[in-house]
Structure formats: structure tokens, C-alpha cells
Nucleic acid binder design. Sequence first.
RNA 1: CGGGACGUGGCGCAGCCUGGUAGCGCACCUGCUUUGGGAGCAGGGGGUCGGGAGUUCAAAUCUCCCCGUCCCGACCA
Length: 472
Amino acid sequence: MGKAPIITPQSEDFPKWYQDLLNKAELADNGPVRGTMVIRPYAYALWERMVSEMDTRIKAAGAENAYFPLFIPESYLHREAEHVEGFSPELAVVTHAGGKELEEPVVVRPTSETVIGEFMAKWVQSYRDLPLLLNQWSNVVRWELRPRTFLRTSEFLWQEGHTAHATSADASAYARTILEDVYRDFMVNVLAMPVYVGRKTADERFAGAINTLTLEGMMKDGKALQMGTSHELGQNFSRAFDVNYQDAEGTQQFAWTTSWGSSTRMMGGLIMAHGDDRGLVVPPRLAATQVVVLVVRDDDSGSVGAAARTLMDELEAVGVRTKLDDRLDVQFGRRATAWELKGVPLRIELGPRDIGEGLAIVARRDTGEKIPMQLSEVAGTVAPALERIQSELLSAAIVSRDDRTHNVSSVDEIFDAVEGGFARIPFTSLDEASITRLSDKGITVRCIQTAEGEAPESEDEPGLTALVAKAY
RNA sequence: CGGGACGUGGCGCAGCCUGGUAGCGCACCUGCUUUGGGAGCAGGGGGUCGGGAGUUCAAAUCUCCCCGUCCCGACCA
């Protein structure tokens, strides 16, 4: 059998492909409340790997983890004018609790600048208390009108960093450190996603920020996905929450704060950046399971199973995250398909035939190639092979990204260019009217970049380009 | 909130127009045969058709009301 595709081909219907994959690879289900999702174990294991890799980088950047409450007094949101305006429409508000109506409604955090600002004010007295570098891993709620699993859900998991600094320059530098050393490093080197970094235009900025830096990933359908953001908040929140300190000269100063976040949306990005018609493709450095040792079938003595277990032990001994699949009551084809759907980077097949010849078949998920290999050599070759796959995934993604990024010189050319890709245009070629024209077609300025493809210090630098695309 | 569609076993659907107490595919369970790419055959379990009211001898099918969901638009990590 097996003629019909397992999942809808990407070329036929990309959103359907995404949905099918979520189901077939057992990644996620919709929750009972609109816009919520259940993250299934396999996807959650990937998320845990993301958390682990990100957390290491966040700590290397000097931030410490803490935890702030889920509930925020509604009044806090109102203290920063733009912030409340930006978030009000999507707030979940608790008006009743403990069987009665609350005196002051409580909002479920959509982000924590406000509560954290309140406590920063308490903790910061002196310039010696700065910088204060905090991060928290938590869930947040934004009542989205158009939910889409992983990409835009009413509740999602994320990390949000919040820092306070003595000077604007310090805050600005830190926002950039996070952008580059935490987010970009993780996305490029672990997710194998060659994200574009840049600066958001004023229209696209975070509510209450003076500058928003972003990382934009390109999905296989050519649409953009914002993978993370790092904001300079200026003194907007420190003024609203009285985060002030006494400087070395004895003068009271308001601190300069930043905030930065990345979420389970990255799961969606991962899926749409690397997935193909056979399912998910997980980069080895991210994979919770890097290798699955699959017992094709066994003989009466169980010698194949024994060899498989030995191999698994050898692999784990050299630090390869390995899983054994010896479910002989499930057909080989079904199991092979299931692991492909899940995107496990390498599959090692063992059967009586192979064992007899001292061989194992090593199958690569990304290319589909199957290589017979001496069983005794497998453990030694897998780790470098995983690294090779990692770098080839990234190279392929870079090529594909570059192929689909089109330099244009006029607004009219953008419409064609963003069908299946991004357009790059001199920032000065865009005016108010053309941006409106574009947004009428669902096309937005993702970010502005310097000629070198970096995030500029301001919108006014000469030679800037705008990266324009349709976005999720 | 504006426009469109839909709600029938776990999932996807047919049945409704021309009322007669429910069917198909996948999934699930049991057995046998298979097992190196999503198995075959046989047997079997599971729904009362989103909710309520009405018409009728009889409603998944007709009427009315309500609820919910999905798609398109405005918002968005």
C-alpha cells in the first residue's frame, strides 16, 4: 500500500501540510478553549532542548532567572500609555475569584514589564545595583483573534528578559548582546535557521519601546516569521514604575530598561523552516532524540535486539542522544515512517541480515540516503555525522533563503518578489503611501538593515535597506 | 465586530432536498497469515446525529430559537 501521501504535500497546501504534520508527528493538539494548545511529549522534548540551549546563553549573557506572578493588577498596565494601548485588546481579565467580584480586576500577564518594573523600583537604589539582569521562563496569555498552533496561541510558553541599566548606551548594548549572542547564536547554530536581524520601524515596534530589534526567519513558503525580539524601552517604564537610582554624583536618575522574548513560536518556525513532505526535520543539535536504533526484525535467539541494545549503549557512551525501537509487533514500514515524520536526524536499521554481515544501515532523515556501515564503526562515526548534518542543514537553509530574497528598486516590484520570498529595497524608497499599499496586500516591513545586513543604530543612517515580506 | 461555511463514533466524511430510530474510510480490539518501507483476511467494540422547543403516528432529516466551531478581514511573540 502506501500510495497516498502521509501528509498533504507542501506545494499543494502549505497550511494543510503544517496541520497534518502537527497531528501525524504527534506534536500538538488544540486545547478545549479556543486558541489554546496541548504540546505533546515529542514536541515538548524539543521545547525543553530549546529552553536548555537558550538558558545557557542567557546566563552567559549575565542574566539570572527569577519568577514573577501570573496575575497582575490591572492598574499596572495603565501606567505606561502606549503599553496599555497595545495590549488592552488582547488581555484576559479576571473579575471574579473566591466566589465574589474582585475590587480591582486582575489581568493574566500578556508580558511582565509592569510587574517586574514595580519590583525593579524596589530593588534598585544605587548605581551599584545596576545593571539588574533578569529573565523568567513562564507562560503568558494574549487573547488572539486568529490562533494558529505554535505560531499564535492564546497561551504560550516563553522566556522574557528584563534588565535595567545606568545609561542608555549600556541598555542599548545589552539589547544587542541578547539579539546576537543569545538569539541569533541559538537560531543559527542550534536551529540551523539563518535568521535576518534588523530593526523594526516605528509602526512595528513593541508597545512602549523606543527601539525593537528582531530576528526574522524565512519559512519554506517564503513567508516571514518573527522568531524573537529585543527591545530598548528607554526610560518609559522606569518613569512609569519609578525605577530610579542615585548615581556616583549623588543625583537621582531613571534607569534605562530593556526587555526581550522568544517563545514556543520557535517550534512553529522550526517546523516550517526545515520540514518537508515526509515530515519534520530536526537539526541534530536540537534533537531530543538524535538517533533511533530500529530493530527491523529479530531471530529466535533475539540476537538483533541484543546487538541493538549494545549499539545504543555505545552511542550513549559517546554522548549521542539515542532511542531504541524494538517494537517488533509494529511493522517496520510503519515505524520507519513514524520516525521520519518526527524528523529524527539518523535512523540506524538492524536486522538479522545485517547482523550476519556485521553491518548496520544508517539512514539520514534530511537527504534520505541510506548508508551500509560496519557495525563496529557506527558508534565512532555517528557524532561527526550529526555535526555534518547540522552544518549541511544550515548551508541549505542559507542557499534557499538567499535564492528567495530579491533585491528590488521600486515598490511595484515588491508584489511579485514577495510571492514565495522576501524583497529587499532601499529604505528611502518606502514612504507612508507605499507602506499602506503594501499592507493592503498583507505585506509588511519586517525590519530595516544596514548594507552589511545588521541592525542599524537608527532609522536615519544612510544606505539602509528594508526587508519586506508577508508574515505569519 | 463585518462577510462566508459548518456542527453525525477518536479523526475525516456520506445520509438531510424526496421524514420511517445511522452508514463509510481511517483509527481501535481479537485471531490467523505476514513483517527489510505506512500489511492482508476474518471477526468485533464504540455514536443516537451541538442544545432546546415545535410539527408529525414517526425527526439526523422539516420549522424556530440558542450555543459552538472553522475560514476571510482588523490585532499580534
